[in-house]
Amino acid sequence: MLFLASLPIPGTEIEEVKPARRPMLAIHSGDEENNCHVIDVRGLKCPLPVLKTAKGIAALPPGVRVVVLATDPMAAIDIPHFCSERGHRFLGRHDDEGVSRYEIETGG
């Protein structure tokens, strides 16, 4: 007796599905070239870029230059607003190949 359930059915192979790699917050202190802190939040979606930025600069003293690298278009609204609400100075934004670079000077 032959059981059909034991035969493979063409086109129904099971592939191993690996979980998507979640981007992690990367903070580089003392970038020698620019003497600043770099917070890399590329790949994160709103509201995570601004939340990770807030966490990354919370312990920094006033006057430290911070560069945030982000790919989320909403960061263009969120990061300047965050700066004005928290007393930081927003120095500007530069876009390059889908990555926005936000420059901040920490406040008191």
Rank of each mutant, 00 (worst) to 15 (best):
G11A: 10
I27C: 07
I39P: 01
D95H: 10
R21A: 14
C83H: 15
R93P: 06
I77W: 13
L60Q: 01
R65A: 03
D72H: 05
S84Y: 10
A58L: 04
D72G: 02
F90K: 15
K18H: 11
D95G: 12
T53M: 14
E33H: 11
G92L: 12
I57R: 04
G56K: 00
A58I: 03
Y102M: 12
D78R: 09
R101W: 10
H37C: 04
G92R: 14
E33R: 12
A70H: 05
I57D: 05
E85C: 15
C83L: 12
H81L: 12
P80E: 15
H81R: 13
A5L: 08
V41C: 06
M24W: 03
H81V: 03
I79P: 01
T106S: 13
V99G: 05
P61Q: 13
C83A: 14
A26Y: 02
K18A: 08
L60F: 00
I79Q: 00
A59S: 12
K52R: 01
E85G: 11
R93W: 06
I77K: 15
G87I: 09
V17Y: 07
I27V: 11
I9Y: 06
L48S: 04
C36E: 14
L69C: 00
F82H: 15
P47Y: 02
A26I: 07
G56M: 01
P8D: 09
S100L: 11
R65S: 03
S84D: 09
P10D: 03
D31K: 08
D96C: 13
E33Y: 06
A26G: 08
I79F: 00
L51N: 07
F82T: 15
E32R: 08
H81K: 13
I57N: 01
G30M: 11
S29R: 15
H28G: 03
A26Q: 05
F82M: 15
E85M: 14
I77C: 12
I27D: 05
D95Y: 09
G107M: 04
H94S: 08
C83F: 14
I14K: 09
T53P: 09
P49H: 03
D31M: 10
D72R: 03
V17M: 06
D95T: 12
E33F: 06
P62A: 02
R42P: 05
P61K: 12
I14R: 10
P10G: 03
L7H: 08
P8R: 10
C36T: 13
L7W: 08
L69T: 00
E16G: 10
C46I: 07
G30V: 12
H81M: 11
V99K: 04
P23K: 06
E15R: 14
D72M: 03
R86C: 10
H28T: 09
K55F: 09
L60R: 00
Y102C: 12
V67W: 01
E33I: 10
G43M: 03
R89N: 09
R22E: 14
H88I: 13
E103P: 09
P80W: 11
P62S: 04
P19D: 14
I9W: 05
M24F: 08
G63N: 02
